[in-house]
Design a protein around this nucleic acid. Structure first.
Lengths: 186, 186, 186, 186
DNA sequence: GATGAATGAGACTTCATTCAT
DNA sequence: TATGAATGAAGTCTCATTCAT
């Protein structure tokens, strides 16, 4: 692994465990085994490092979301697959999940996030848009619908990662069904 | 306002604006116009200050949730009222909303939060529990249902506070209906 | 001596010995026996510390310049006394001399220096102005005349402090006479 | 321009603009467009780079000083020409002027400077020495006389470069005359 | 109750320099 | 000759906290 990747990986581990606030550059240095100067050779500053990491993870998630989607599938079928894709990405990458959630709520760089999201989530946005137009989804503001669904996935994923509930096929199906019921026209 | 309240109020303002991470004691001192020693006279340390604030806000929210609930109301009617209560508390107190969300995601003091939540939300928990027993709500894990609903309210509140969508009676009703559809047995 | 004065005194000693460039805050901390935080309690930052010191020394020099000046004295007599006053201040306070010279050439804060100088040197400026008006001094730009004289004093003071020449009453008189000959109308 | 010259030129620009103190190797790298290793290929270290530059400039100035001097000229005539030579070098090369002044006042490498000066300024030293011996110049310490004159030139040059006064033939003549009056026997 | 001077560990970052390519 | 990734000591400054008044 290149030094640059070592730094990014270590930062992910630390921020997901300790949070933004408690992840000092000093800690990254110690854990990654890289010299302080090396960090600043690859990244302008701490913020740039975090931003880079965020951006890469967002892209990864964006790709994960649409994996195995077949245009022939029915709308509802796609919904279930997308939901599972996001969910799987979250529980298979709990550190990335923590990081993305943490950063999403963090009060800085909000504007840029929006712009990036827009591009990585374009297919998802198109999908929801078509659902509204086809009269399958409730005619609520597009991004509200999307945020509701993302929120639902995160709620389940968080509880499983935190071991507050146990994962089971039936629970997953029910959770998706619940989410579907909240966005579809009944 | 007492010095103690000045400190708490200023902390709320700063944390909601800058986040946890960027709210230093030094900033609280400067903005509140209180001497550093005074803070440590009223609070054991910074953590105690934040915890106190969090606890007070959580209590406030706990009370807001059940306001105007009449035991004679139908289950669904109560659901709509509770939803509106939480929602109103959030958009009428955007700083408190920000603070609570921030703190909820923050990786420290998680254990104690749970205990406190448990006590302030007892009526809410009982309400959801009865809904499951009565066969009105889906038989999903109790806290999962509660978290889903809280997540739904927060999603709408955040978007309105961030001015990503505009509040309207119809939107609110639809949002609650959507939330209801996701937890009730269809 | 107050902590604040300890810091200023130590800074003077270090800057005059090592120069601007080599005087780190860490060195000031070590030599003054004060904690790093204390410096930043009294001064906004390193620059503010240096500026404060500069301003105080400039004021001191401004006062020294006009000491023992009697308005009854002849113009030339005053010139000799002023020259000696500056010179004495320099060789009796070699560290202050070094510091002032160093800082005068330093490329930052130049604008503010000018403003400060203007106020501390008002009597000196008035004196030279009257000399020109009375036809005693060459009609060269006012500040050029002043700078020439200051430069002459500094040249002698520096060589004596550096022990490149030895001070002697006769040398001093000759040096002042030389300086006088360069500004007076011959 | 060779890489070596690019480095020297950039260093000159940076030091004259920012001063010694603020001119980092990193800045030189960025501005010159040269790789860090390249600097250390051509110069032993930063000090060697600065010293080399200083030495080259000192030599240049040394040559400029005696340009167009004709041994047949009268002593005073030579004085005026030398003065103009130094002055012209300064205002035509303001960055070199700044650099040389900065370095002269800098507290490091002082010893070697003296040695170098000695060799480049030999003709100038001889000139002043003969002036004293011939009874034209005041019998003041040789280097004091030289420093006074250099100081006078620098005073005028600095004020013109800083745009505190405007250059004019008459002013220049008067300034040189003033300088001459301060060193010649009256 | 309230003040603010003082602390020193630790924060982020820049520095001059090296070395494998 | 020239490159630029890598280094780690040292830089400035902020942090939460204490304590005499």
């Amino acid at each position: 692994m290149s030094k640059r990747d070592q730094i990014l990986q270590t930062t992910l581990e630390l921020v997901s465990e300790l949070g933004f606030h408690a992840t000092s550059v000093g800690l990254i240095i110690k854990k990654s085994g890289v010299a302080s100067g090396t960090i600043y050779h690859h990244f302008k500053n701490k913020e740039d490092l975090i931003d880079t990491l965020y951006s890469e993870l967002k892209k990864e998630l964006g790709n994960a979301i649409i994996s195995n989607i077949d245009q022939e599938m029915a709308f509802k079928e796609k919904f279930f697959l997308i939901w599972k894709n996001i969910f799987r990405f979250y529980i298979e990458n709990p550190m990335k999940f923590e990081f993305l959630e943490d950063y999403a709520n963090s009060p800085f760089v909000r504007k840029e996030i929006k712009v990036i999201s827009q591009s990585y989530y374009k297919p998802l946005i198109n999908y929801f848009e078509s659902g509204i137009q086809m009269g399958i989804l409730r005619s609520l503001p597009l991004h509200f619908l999307i945020n509701i669904v993302f929120g639902n996935v995160a709620t389940l994923a968080r509880m499983i990662i935190m071991e507050e509930i146990e994962i089971a096929d039936e629970l997953l199906i029910n959770a998706i069904q619940s989410s579907w019921d909240s966005v579809k026209i009944n």
